[in-house]
């Protein structure tokens, strides 16, 4: 029985709470998150509005709750895109001849020169800003991380005796990749997914803040921050709530990633 490490527990709890909040928001929020009530604009936190209201009189807590859906949705799709492209690419790079592998990894490195934000702004310029372009851009920008990590893991698996045996028995590369390599890199995929999720949350927040992410009226933490900017002097709390939500979400996924990494590779535990 492995001892639970604090990062894993803390990360798991934070991520769990965010997922729960998103699920609850489907059936219940204190108020309709998009309901504009001019009479109750810029209210301070109180019993009826725990986090106060914004410039349109919308309940901030309800927006934070519904905003968690946006955050998780973007994260899941972006990480999905990255994994679907990056994992096969990494395994392929580990299995092909040396120079083909070199070409794949160089192309992969080249993608690193296009960070998520830059890619998303380019996508926004060409296709118009939307949640979809943001998710795809963040996903593509996260491919190099997956490909790199999975390749190094897959290279180790390729040197194991059971893979050598399978090759000696005349198994073709494709079944080896699916039957032997993929199952043995799932722990790496899980860790990378958690780390990429944190990056996706950050990128989505930054993009919505710049106006290239989720368009209104769908609540998004990044856009709440952007809308709060004109009230920094009169109502700084409008920036604090979504800001803290973003930071906690990123912290949660980072801790979860660290915790998972320690769990799958106990040798590393000491280093974190």
């Amino acid at each position: 029985m492995k001892r639970l490490n604090p990062s894993l527990v803390a990360g798991g709890v934070i991520v769990g709470v965010i997922v729960l909040m998103a699920l609850v928001s489907f059936v219940w929020t204190p108020y309709d998150a998009t309901l504009v009530t001019p009479a109750s604009r810029l209210l301070k936190p109180s019993w009826s509005h725990w986090f106060g209201t914004d410039k349109f009189g919308r309940d901030v807590l309800s927006q934070i709750m519904v905003g968690s859906r946006t955050t998780l949705f973007v994260g899941v799709v972006a990480v999905g895109v990255a994994a679907v492209i990056g994992v096969p690419l990494g395994i392929l790079a580990a299995m092909v001849r040396r120079w083909s592998s070199e070409v794949i990894m160089r192309a992969n490195d080249l993608l690193l020169a296009f960070p998520a934000l830059l890619l998303a702004i380019m996508f926004g310029a060409v296709f118009g800003a939307s949640t979809l372009t943001a998710m795809v851009a963040i996903g593509i920008a996260s491919v190099p991380g997956f490909a790199r990590v999975i390749r190094s893991g897959a290279l180790q698996v390729m040197r194991t005796e059971y893979v050598l045996a399978a090759r000696a028995a005349g198994r073709r590369p494709w079944p080896i990749a699916v039957r032997h390599v993929l199952p043995n890199v799932t722990s790496l995929i899980t860790v990378q997914a958690s780390v990429s999720f944190a990056i996706a949350v950050l990128a989505e927040a930054a993009l919505s803040f710049l106006g290239y992410g989720t368009p209104p009226p769908t609540p998004s933490w990044g856009r709440m921050l952007q809308e709060s900017q004109e009230f920094l002097f009169s109502a700084p709390r409008l920036a604090i709530f979504p800001g803290v939500a973003i930071a906690i979400a990123v912290l949660g996924f980072n801790l979860l990633g660290d915790g998972l990494r320690d769990r799958f590779d106990p040798k590393l535990e000491d280093r974190r």
Partner: peptide, 18 residues
Amino acid sequence: SQVGVAVPAFLAGILLIV
């Protein structure tokens, strides 16, 4: 440092302004 990593630069900017 773990908390610092979780704060995006633009959020840090807003907090510093506040």
